[in-house]
């Protein structure tokens, strides 16, 4: 475990806590894409199937359980909570998830490192995570007056991915056999999707204005 990896995981954790805080404190999920949240739950579910087959470390196990638990509780709030579910922008959250789920599934079947069910599901989760933010970014573009917590949530998610790239560079340099092209390419693509958002996030911050995407 290096400092970049730890910082990345903590940033990821904080992003989820910020989202939960927004939902609890404001009793609203306005501006949050349920489609992206569904996709993340799917990502965690398929990636962490090895919870049952392999023990890596206590840290690893606890974090996996936390990510699974929090992602499903966010979905629970958005779908079923008496107050919160009414604040969901269903009409604006129109991205068709099927257009990313199917290509990712096909890609995972074609490009993987081992022909086993667990490995193909794991690879699918890597591809899917790379593009799972798209419905959220589309919804943000349609949202007038993006609130601070929503903006910071997406910013932290992007930062988490960027830190993972630093972690990979560090591991590549320090661990002789560390090679993972599928993960690296997906991760770089995923971080790239945030570039536009980061630009407007910093612009709003510098000018002391409310964030909005053109």
């Amino acid at each position: 475990m290096n400092i970049f990896r730890l910082a990345a995981d903590m940033t990821h954790l904080i992003s989820i806590l910020v989202l939960l805080l927004k939902i609890h404190a404001t009793r609203s999920c306005r501006g949050i894409s349920l489609k992206t949240q569904d996709l993340y739950a799917l990502v965690f579910l398929f990636r962490y199937l090895d919870l049952f087959t392999r023990y890596i470390s206590l840290y690893n196990t606890v974090m996996k359980l936390v990510f699974l638990g929090t992602s499903f509780s966010i979905i629970y709030f958005m779908r079923f909570h008496r107050v919160v579910r009414n604040t969901y922008d269903k009409e604006q959250d129109t991205f068709r998830s099927i257009f990313i789920v199917v290509p990712c599934a096909v890609l995972a079947l074609l490009i993987n490192q081992e022909r086993s069910v667990l490995e193909i599901l794991w690879t699918f989760s890597i591809y899917l995570e790379a593009v799972a933010i798209l419905p959220q970014l589309v919804l943000l573009q349609r949202t007038q007056n993006i609130d601070n917590l929503t903006g910071n949530y997406v910013f932290l998610l992007g930062t988490y991915r960027g830190l993972y790239i630093l972690n990979w560079i560090y591991r590549y340099l320090t661990e002789p056999h560390y090679r993972q092209w599928i993960v690296w390419l997906s991760g770089v693509l995923q971080t790239g999707l945030y570039v536009d958002f980061f630009y407007y996030y910093f612009l709003a911050w510098r000018n002391n204005q409310k964030l909005s995407l053109p």
């Binding site: 690893n60 996996k64 972690n167 056999h177 090679r179 993972q180």
Partner: peptide, 10 residues
């Protein structure tokens, strides 16, 4: 084993 390394990541 290197191929499996990232499986210790989240």
């Amino acid at each position: 084993e290197g191929e499996k390394a990232s499986k210790d990541e989240l």
